[in-house]
Amino acid sequence: MDATPTLIDDDTWTVAGRVFRSRLVVGTGKYRDLPETAAAIEASGAEIVTVAVRRVNLSDASAPMLQDYVDPKRYTYLPNTAGCHTAKDAVRTLRLAREAGGWNLVKLEVLGPPPHLYPDMAATFEAAAALIADGFEVMVYCADDPVAAKRLEQMGCVAVMPLGAPIGSGLGIQNPAMLAMLIEQARVPVLVDAGVGTASDAAIAMELGCDAVLLNSAIAHAREPVRMARAMRLAVEAGRLAHRAGRMPRRMGADPSSPLAGLIR
């Protein structure tokens, strides 16, 4: 008898026509070195990794590059617009990324100032419009704002990525009710991006019904990044399974699990 139900293998998600099995998307920043980056990404099981575009250090052109450790043929690189504050900067940066890598699936993020680095939605709308007009497929970091997320979707963004909490804060899923409503109404994939601090946060995000979780610091800044990468992989799978299984109703009182009938006297 085949007692192993197909719970995960048939459960894929699709963004811009690309099909993925892993629902964990990881960043490649903040690691101690490139070997640690590679080991943590491997342990995470991620199929998509975010990357930044920066000037080459011309005084040390022989320094190892990210591609030497994280193979772009194996992982889908998702170039970001970190550090861009205008639509012009974002378009310029991602045009370079497209030339360096040859793909047009990108992560748009336009941030406000510290200490919150909250998504600058006015600038995000402007940059999204410019990128879509230039032929990019835009996965967009955004506020946990269902109105803004719907507008981005209607503009043609291929995924919306509301924050769980401020970038790098590790504060967890701060606004689950609004995220649940945003997910409910979305017609493109929703990824919770930023704010995850530990495995339970990732599971909570997945239980809310989002399509995937994007995180970086929670792995890179763990005491043991490779171990935490594995924890995140399992948490995302667990949260996804729990969402699909459908949780039991909450009730304001106990309900014994063992039958009361047949007690010995």
Binding site: G27, T28, G29, L34, T37, V51, R55, L58, L96, A97
Partner: peptide, 24 residues
């Protein structure tokens, strides 16, 4: 990339040479 060999540089040109690095 296909135009690297045919693109001659001139004085005053400003070039940006970029690559991918780790990022979130």
């Amino acid at each position: 990339r296909s135009a690297y060999h045919a693109t001659h540089l001139a004085s005053g040109d400003a070039l940006e040479i970029v690559h991918f690095i780790g990022g979130g």
